[in-house]
């Protein structure tokens, strides 16, 4: 099977976030790492490769530093990758990035599966996977927690996680896009030989122009960031004094007439 995994770099959530201007975050203070959900996708792809053979190709878009995350996926066992490296794509929204990723996937000339995390830990938009599926005109499934591949390697049985601990089971055909939910697996630690080999693996660098990406920058975007801010938290608490009976009466009165929740 030829499997593409889309990997995104996200801030380590222990980092200090500082807002500059209205809609930008100061990245100089931030440590970056691979999006956890994408790490599950890499592991799921490697398990399929171990079972059915083929190759796992990593595609990632972002500045130079994302090579670190791509190399990490290489160290885990992925075969090679494409780094879409273009500031004009980085300036765009999820739609622009998805468009560029699609061009990179198309440049591979036919793939069986595209896998990525259900969402990125930072913007939590959960858009890239479904955008990519739509643009590629592939069927897709989100929130995937189990993947079974039929003997023909073309039919898939997928468990999808719903709220309330429910799973639904779907059957679909390749080529498909799957967005991977946590809990599907325990990503492997890269082995030392894997790490030592990661640097020698092929990583193609592509600009928007190389891939023929039309929609770039703010102009190509469907959304515009107006403002980023830390929500102000309001602490409102009232302690009702007095004996238990009277206090309970006051509480019920307040819940009914002031908070209007009962």
């Amino acid at each position: 099977m030829k499997i593409v995994v889309l990997v995104k770099e996200v801030p380590d959530m222990e980092s200090k976030f500082k807002i500059v201007g209205d809609a930008k975050i100061d990245e100089s203070q931030i440590a970056f790492k691979m999006n956890d959900f994408d790490e599950y996708a890499v592991e799921a792809a490697l398990q399929l490769k171990e079972k059915f053979g083929g190759e796992v190709v990593i595609v990632s878009s972002g500045p130079d530093r994302v090579t670190k995350e791509v190399r990490q996926a290489f160290a885990m066992g992925a075969d090679w990758g494409i780094h879409v490296s273009d500031p004009q794509i980085d300036e765009g929204d999820n739609f622009v990035v998805a468009g560029a990723l699609v061009k990179a996937i198309e440049s591979l000339g036919g793939v069986d599966l595209v896998m990525t995390g259900v969402q990125a830990e930072d913007d939590q938009a959960a858009l890239t996977g479904v955008f990519v599926a739509d643009m590629l005109n592939f069927s897709h499934c989100t929130n995937v927690v189990k993947i079974e591949v039929g003997a023909d390697q073309k039919s898939l049985t997928i468990n999808r996680e719903l709220e309330g601990g429910l799973n639904e089971v779907l059957e679909m055909a390749t080529p498909a896009v799957l967005t991977i939910q946590s809990g599907i697996n325990q990503p492997r630690y890269p082995t030392l030989p894997g790490i030592m080999k990661a640097k020698k693996k092929r990583l193609d660098l592509k600009k928007a122009a190389d891939l023929g990406v039309g929609a770039i920058g703010e102009a190509g975007s469907k959304t515009k960031f107006h403002k980023i801010f830390f929500p102000v938290s309001e602490h409102k608490a009232e302690i009702i004094q007095g004996d238990a009976k009277a206090a309970a009466k006051t509480l019920v009165d307040k819940l009914r007439n002031e908070a209007k929740v009962i």
């Binding site: 082995t191 030392l192 030592m196």
Partner: peptide, 23 residues
């Protein structure tokens, strides 16, 4: 052992990682 930490200085040809003394 499975991660390759038993033979960190051993060359690949003998099953090691040849990661070196600093690593």
């Amino acid at each position: 052992g499975g991660l390759g930490l038993f033979g960190m200085m051993v060359p690949e040809a003998y099953g090691g990682a040849a990661a070196g003394a600093v690593s």
